[in-house]
Amino acid sequence: MKKMEDIPDRKLLLFKSCMVSQEYPGIEKATKYLFDRLGIDYFVSEEQSCCTGIGHYVDLYGQLTTTAIAARNFAVARKCGYPNIACMCSTCYAINKEACELLNGNEEVRAQVNSVFREKGLEDLVYAKGDLDERTNIFHVLEVIFSKKELLTEMTEVDFSGLKAAAHHACHYYKFRPEDMIGNPENPRLIDGVAGACGADMLRWYEDRSLTCGMGFAQLHIHKDTSLKVTQTKLESLRKAGVELLLHMCPNCHIQYDRCQPVIEKEFGSEYDFVHMNIAQFAALALGADPYKVCGLQTHSVPLENFLEKYGII
């Protein structure tokens, strides 16, 4: 199990996510805002590419391609001197972790990836065993924020007391490498910890807490009905639990909940009166960040205005 004191706050490469960039850019801005406020030393590289996650998990890219792309991003991290990768997307986290494991543990893969680099004249990308450590160099942004949660409590400005919120932890964070996360993987409490530190009243348990968001990569597209059914199941248990806000940690989940909630309401004839946010957006709000200029809440499909008004933010 990962320990909180093992989470670095220096030399973090804030790993951009395609889905954050294209759907909820406020997550990135809110994360930077938090990092700045929390005094975290980070860097964003314009050379860092997509992790391949989307293509990888729709069965398009081979593991070797994915691993080579990751090796390139590791070289980016290395070259800019920010070797601690902090992902905003849980799939980036999983992809990078697995690629790093392979590069360190499988000589044949490493040799093959490096030979591709050499063949293409990209010597500077060559990966040497141990360049990065899958356990001590690859993190989810939430872990970093979680490790500073005492500071958050001190800095919180918005009074969220009485807010009933629930957490949805990302599958590719806690189910992918359960032995390498903070806390018990059967009951991840990172989001709860951060939101709790900001004053929210977190639901201890709800039915289908561990159910996936339903996106399932290709599933949302090739089996849309099942995909939405899963999401609806989840929304139903949240409704029963009477929450106002669902917090997540991955743009894929975010799309599934926020973008699809109105679609589900229409298709299943149900109505949900709760809203969605990434935990970084929520923590930034708590610290007094602007809901639009920092958290980018205008990009959401489920309008947050009532929520913001209720807590005196707008």
């Binding site: 990135e28 801005k29 792309i69 390139r72 004249g121």
Partner: peptide, 29 residues
């Protein structure tokens, strides 16, 4: 425009050497 307001950079990455293409090619994608 939203990205600009948020102070975020380009969506595309900087890849002058066409590294991504080379890697996709080299790994047979």
């Amino acid at each position: 425009a939203i990205r600009a307001e948020l102070g975020l950079g380009s969506l595309d990455i900087r890849d002058e050497r066409k590294e991504i293409r080379s890697i996709l090619e080299g790994t047979g994608h």
